[in-house]
């Protein structure tokens, strides 16, 4: 077997492999920049919470229509948005902080979602929803992923500047523009959108992996926002490709393989990145003078 056969062969020979690659790469492309902003806003765990929140909506879609993409995606999107808005509302109306109310809502959602899917389906269906089936992406699913990525990237480009300002200096943005709140909501919608986009392939629980792990890893390599987004995309794409390759040759589940590769890249970056443990320990950092 030559190198080409080894590295490219599976994707040429098998339609399901090439579709899986296209799907995962497009998800990585779209989700990684969103993950970068989540990380910079110190909302890394919010992505995780939202991923759980999608489940009851997808469950309702499943109850009504079975394992069909559109109903499950729309249901998941609606459920995710509702939880995000409710959590924000509770923190505004009561003394409870947003992280706590978010945790409460997503736990309710997770239980409700598992319950709903189990009502009609088997445990295989449940596994399907929770962990996805990147190797079974059909054309409808690919179109859905493409649409999600397009909407997401265009929206992100449109709100880039206010989002940047909102992260860096929220009070400044509030002093010059009333757009901060709207931008925050659009951003939350993008988080949910990318999670439902990824959930066909990776499942609700792992979709957040292609969002957060590349962003977290990129932080150890570069400093500028644009560079962070590009490096995160690169890491996401590489993880998708390598993960599928591992999955093919080692006969391991593809979703977890992709996320584990991203996880390995994260750990590697943590150790040897420009701003990782080894370099910042061997070469002491420049000290800030307050």
């Amino acid at each position: 077997m030559n190198l080409f056969d080894f590295f490219v062969g599976p994707f040429v020979t098998y339609g399901f492999m090439s579709r899986a690659l296209v799907g995962a790469v497009v998800i990585a492309l779209s989700a990684a920049p969103v993950g970068v902003f989540l990380m910079l806003r110190r909302m890394s765990l919010t992505g995780d919470a939202m991923a759980h929140a999608i489940l009851p909506g997808a469950g309702v879609g499943f109850l009504l229509a079975g394992l069909e993409i559109l109903p499950m995606t729309l249901g998941g999107f609606a459920a995710g948005l509702i939880v995000a808005l409710l959590a924000g509302l509770v923190s505004r109306l009561t003394i409870q902080r947003e992280d706590t109310s978010l945790a409460a809502f997503y736990l309710i959602s997770l239980a409700l979602g598992v319950m709903l899917v189990s009502l009609r389906g088997s445990s295989v269906d449940l596994m399907h929803v929770l962990f996805g089936t990147v190797l079974a992406l059909n054309n409808d699913a690919l179109i859905m992923i493409g649409a999600v990525a397009t909407i997401s990237l265009v929206s992100l480009a449109l709100i880039w500047r206010p989002l940047f300002a909102e992260c860096l200096d929220p009070n400044f943005l509030r002093s010059v523009s009333g757009a901060g709140q709207a931008v925050h909501l659009i951003f939350l919608a993008l988080v949910v959108l990318n999670l439902v986009g990824g959930f066909q392939a990776l499942g609700t629980l792992l979709a957040v992996g292609l969002m957060m792990l590349p962003a977290a890893a990129a932080r150890f390599w570069v400093k500028r926002l644009e560079a962070l987004c590009l490096v995160a995309i690169g890491i996401g794409v590489a993880s998708s490709y390598l993960g599928l390759l591992f999955s093919y040759y080692l006969s391991v589940p593809s979703g977890p393989a992709i996320i584990l590769v991203a996880g390995a890249i994260y750990l590697l970056s943590l150790l040897v990145g420009n701003r990782g443990v080894i370099r910042t320990r061997l070469v002491p950092p420049r000290h800030r003078i307050a």
Binding site: L40, D169, N171, S175, S177, L225
Partner: peptide, 30 residues
Amino acid sequence: TRNIAYLPQSAEIDRSFPATVADLVALGHW
């Protein structure tokens, strides 16, 4: 209110944010 320039207390700005000095200053063009 847009004709009011406001400089928040410095602790409210996230200086670990990956931006350059020019990025920060250019916000003034808002």
